[in-house]
C-alpha cells in the first residue's frame, strides 16, 4: 500500500504512556478485547491509533482470502477456506496487520455486508459482498467518535464482537464469516456517554488528558510543527525507533505463549473483582490477560507486581458499577493495596 503523506510516527507522540501501552498490548495480544480511549479534544487519540499501523507486525494469511484467514487456526476459517484450503499445499502470504476504519456515518449494510449488486444485475446471481466487519477480521477495527455511532450499528458491532463471527441474514443473502477484530474506539465524553454494554466489550479503557507539564507541552508543539514542515523527513528521523518497537512487539508475541501465571495471581483477580463488585466475569479474565501480556511486552516470562498495577488501571475502572451522581473516579488506593498485599505472584 502506498501512502501519500507519512502519518505521524507512533514513537514521536509525547507522553500519554497509558494510551500507548494499551494500544501496544492489544497488538501483541489481539484477544485482549480492544481499547476505548476517552478524552478531551486534541489529545492525540486518533493520531495514536492511526500511527499504530506503522509498527504493526506481519501476519501470515491464506492467499486470496478476503477474511485474512489464519492458515494455522482452522477453527476460525471462513467457509471458502474450509473447503478449498489445505494446510500442506495451500499458498499463504505475509501481510501487515491493518487498521480498518469504521466511519460514524457507516450504514448497517456496509458494516455487515450485503448483496453484490453488480453480479445480481449482470448475471442474475446472488453473492455476498463483504462489508467492513469482513475486512476487520484479524485486524484492528477503529471507530472514531464511537459514542456518536448509530445505535443499531452498535448493536451489530456488539453481536459480532461477542461471537467473533458475523452472521448476515438480510437483503436476500445469508452468510456467515469470522469477524475477530480488535475493537479500538475513541470518544470525547462530553458528547454523550457510551452504553455500558458496549463499554464492557472493550477490554481496556484509558482516560487521556492534555499534558500539564509545560516542558512536555512545548515538546508536543515542536514536534508537531516539525512534522507539518516536512512529514517525510520527520518520519525518517524516527524510523529507527519505530523499527525497534516493531521488533519488540514481535518478540513479545512469541514470549506471550510462554508467560506463566500463578494461583496467587488468579486469586488476586477474583478478590479484586469481588471487592469492587464488578458485573460478570469479564473483568477478572481481562485483568489477568492484561498482566500476562504486559509481562511479555517487558520480555519476562513471569508476572510481576508492575504488570498487575497496570492491568488494574486499564482493565478495571470501567467495569465497576457506577452509581448516579458520582464521578467515575475509582478508589484505586484500595485496589493497589490488594495488589501490594498479594502473595505468591
Amino acid at each position: 500500500m502506498r501512502k501519500e503523506t507519512k502519518v505521524y510516527p507512533f514513537c514521536a507522540i509525547v507522553g500519554q504512556e497509558d494510551m500507548k501501552k494499551a494500544l501496544l498490548l492489544n497488538v501483541i495480544n489481539p484477544l485482549l478485547g480492544g481499547v476505548l480511549i476517552r478524552g478531551e479534544k486534541g489529545t492525540a487519540k486518533s493520531t495514536a491509533v492511526r500511527a499504530l499501523a506503522d509498527v504493526m507486525p506481519q501476519m501470515t494469511q491464506i492467499k486470496g482470502c478476503m477474511f485474512s484467514c489464519d492458515p494455522e487456526d482452522d477453527s476460525f476459517w471462513c467457509e471458502h477456506c474450509r473447503q478449498n484450503f489445505h494446510r500442506e499445499e495451500g499458498e499463504t502470504v505475509q501481510r501487515k496487520m491493518r487498521v480498518v476504519n469504521l466511519p460514524v456515518s457507516a450504514t448497517e449494510d456496509r458494516v455487515v455486508g450485503s448483496l453484490d449488486i453488480e453480479l445480481a444485475l449482470k448475471k442474475g446471481e446472488k453473492r455476498f459482498e463483504p462489508g467492513i466487519l469482513a475486512e476487520a477480521n484479524r485486524n484492528i477495527l477503529y471507530v472514531d467518535e464511537v459514542n456518536l455511532l448509530d445505535d443499531h450499528v452498535v448493536d451489530v458491532l456488539l453481536d459480532a464482537a461477542a461471537m467473533g463471527v458475523n452472521t448476515v441474514e438480510r437483503e436476500g443473502v445469508s452468510y456467515t464469516h469470522p469477524a475477530r477484530f480488535v475493537l479500538v474506539g475513541t470518544m470525547n465524553p462530553e458528547e454523550g456517554d457510551l452504553r455500558p454494554q458496549l463499554i464492557d466489550r472493550f477490554g481496556l479503557v484509558v482516560d487521556v488528558n492534555g499534558e500539564k507539564d509545560s516542558d512536555l507541552r512545548m515538546q508536543v508543539i515542536m514536534r508537531r510543527l516539525a512534522y507539518e514542515d516536512n512529514p517525510a523527513e520527520f518520519a525518517e528521523s524516527y524510523a529507527e525507533e519505530q523499527e525497534e518497537l516493531a521488533r519488540q512487539i514481535k518478540e513479545a508475541q512469541k514470549t506471550l505463549k510462554e508467560v506463566t501465571y500463578s494461583q496467587g495471581c488468579l486469586r488476586l483477580a477474583a478478590e479484586i473483582a469481588i471487592a469492587m463488585g464488578v458485573d460478570g466475569h469479564r473483568a477478572d479474565i481481562t485483568f489477568v490477560k492484561t498482566a500476562l501480556t504486559h509481562a511479555a511486552y517487558r520480555g519476562r516470562r513471569e508476572v510481576e507486581k508492575e504488570d498487575l498495577f497496570l492491568a488494574a488501571k486499564l482493565a478495571l475502572p470501567h467495569r465497576m458499577r457506577r452509581k448516579p451522581f458520582e464521578d467515575n473516579a475509582v478508589d484505586f488506593d484500595s485496589i493497589y493495596e490488594l495488589v501490594e498485599a498479594a502473595k505468591d505472584i
Partner: peptide
C-alpha cells in the same frame, strides 16, 4: 442475528 430483515 440482530441485522435480520423480514425476507430472510
Amino acid at each position: 442475528p440482530l441485522n435480520i430483515t423480514e425476507d430472510k
